[in-house]
Amino acid sequence: MFVVAFDQLARRLGSAPTFESVAEFTLLFAAVWWAWSGNTVYAARYGNAGRLYRWGTLGELILVAMVALTLRGDLGDIAGFFALAFGANRAVQAALHLWVGRQSPELRGFARRLGWATGLSALVWAGSVLLPWGGQGQLVAWTLALLLEIFTPILARDVGRAALPHAGHLPERVGLLQIIALGEIVTQVVGGARQQRLSAVTLLPALCAILLAVSLWRLYFDQARTLPLLGAHLQGRVDTMLAWFYGHFPFTLSVVMLSVGVGQSLGSGSARQAAVLQQFVAWPLAGALATLAFLRWTTLRLMGRRTDRSLWALLVGAVLAGLLGPTDLDPLRLHALAAALTITVAVLVATDASTRRLGQIEQRVTARLAEDPEP
């Protein structure tokens, strides 16, 4: 269901790729991403074998499907339906947390805080239906409701040590979402190429876009992805774990926006539209590389280091990607330069001795936790 919702959001942005639509897209994307993260982290914290979780997840998925159905048309026409569906999703999530707090005394402090915050957020979403649909007041209410939920785990991180997510399950689910987001690039590229006659002129930019997606996949999975979460289990570094997890939001957002840029630019007609779509390639790629640099930094910080060659490669790559924005490029040159840049950064990261060492540390720590779950 989350796959469908992300695809609907990409199509929504692709139908009118203007800078004015980015803020609306970002807010709606943040809501769907947070619904996914709530279900994912809940399962990683408390397990997914209970009957209540299965019934709750079924309800959440049905409501996410309803959210996806509302993601069409003008916001002024669909905002109330979106708010009701999403608010009901948050109410289910709140009930799950409150149930955990009732059943597990050792988890009560953390679970109840998340439950009450999520429940209040659900009320705000439902109450926003009474405001003008798509108006500034409603959008502010949605933003405040999301911020309430986002900051609650940060403010409750001390008691959150009693409910750390599983060191293996959470990275696996987070990685799966990134694969889905990167796959959206291929989906949008195929859709954009179908609008043009099949020829080398359309195939070469599409090939470059696919190479770009594969390079981003390699860059993401070359990271020692579980070390911040392992550090929370071994050292109680909940702040680093939260920075690592929240850092995935801008990466997923950038990748989905990038999919719109590379896909729509293949079928763009006017020079003005091509210029706008060029920004939707340059800046999301810069955002994706910058976010990967941040994720790298969280891991290095945990190891007591500040930088390495890979971090600098990612940062320089983000700057160079941003410089593609103001240049005047046709789709072939734009996609070729973006792919060449990303491939170069991926090679630099893959051949960095620090990448290999971090991977070895990750394997040793994972094996230690497997032998002794209570550090």
Rank of each mutant, 00 (worst) to 15 (best):
L285H: 04
T299A: 10
V276N: 09
Q273N: 05
V276G: 11
W283E: 04
V262E: 12
A275P: 05
F280E: 07
T298A: 14
P284C: 11
F280R: 07
W283F: 08
L277V: 06
Q273P: 00
A271Q: 12
S268H: 09
A290Y: 06
G269F: 09
V281H: 04
A274S: 13
L285V: 06
L292C: 00
Q278S: 12
F294P: 04
L277I: 10
L292G: 07
S265V: 15
R296K: 07
S270F: 05
V276D: 14
S265R: 15
G263M: 02
A282P: 10
L300K: 07
R296V: 00
G261N: 01
L295P: 03
A274E: 13
A282V: 01
Q273K: 02
T291P: 05
L277D: 08
V281D: 03
L289R: 02
A274L: 14
G263Y: 14
S265E: 13
L277F: 07
V262C: 08
F294S: 08
R296F: 10
Q264W: 08
A275T: 03
L277G: 00
L285G: 02
S270G: 13
L292F: 03
V276R: 08
S270Q: 06
Q278M: 11
T291F: 09
L300T: 02
A288D: 02
G261F: 03
A293R: 04
G263K: 03
A282M: 06
G261Q: 09
G261A: 01
L300W: 00
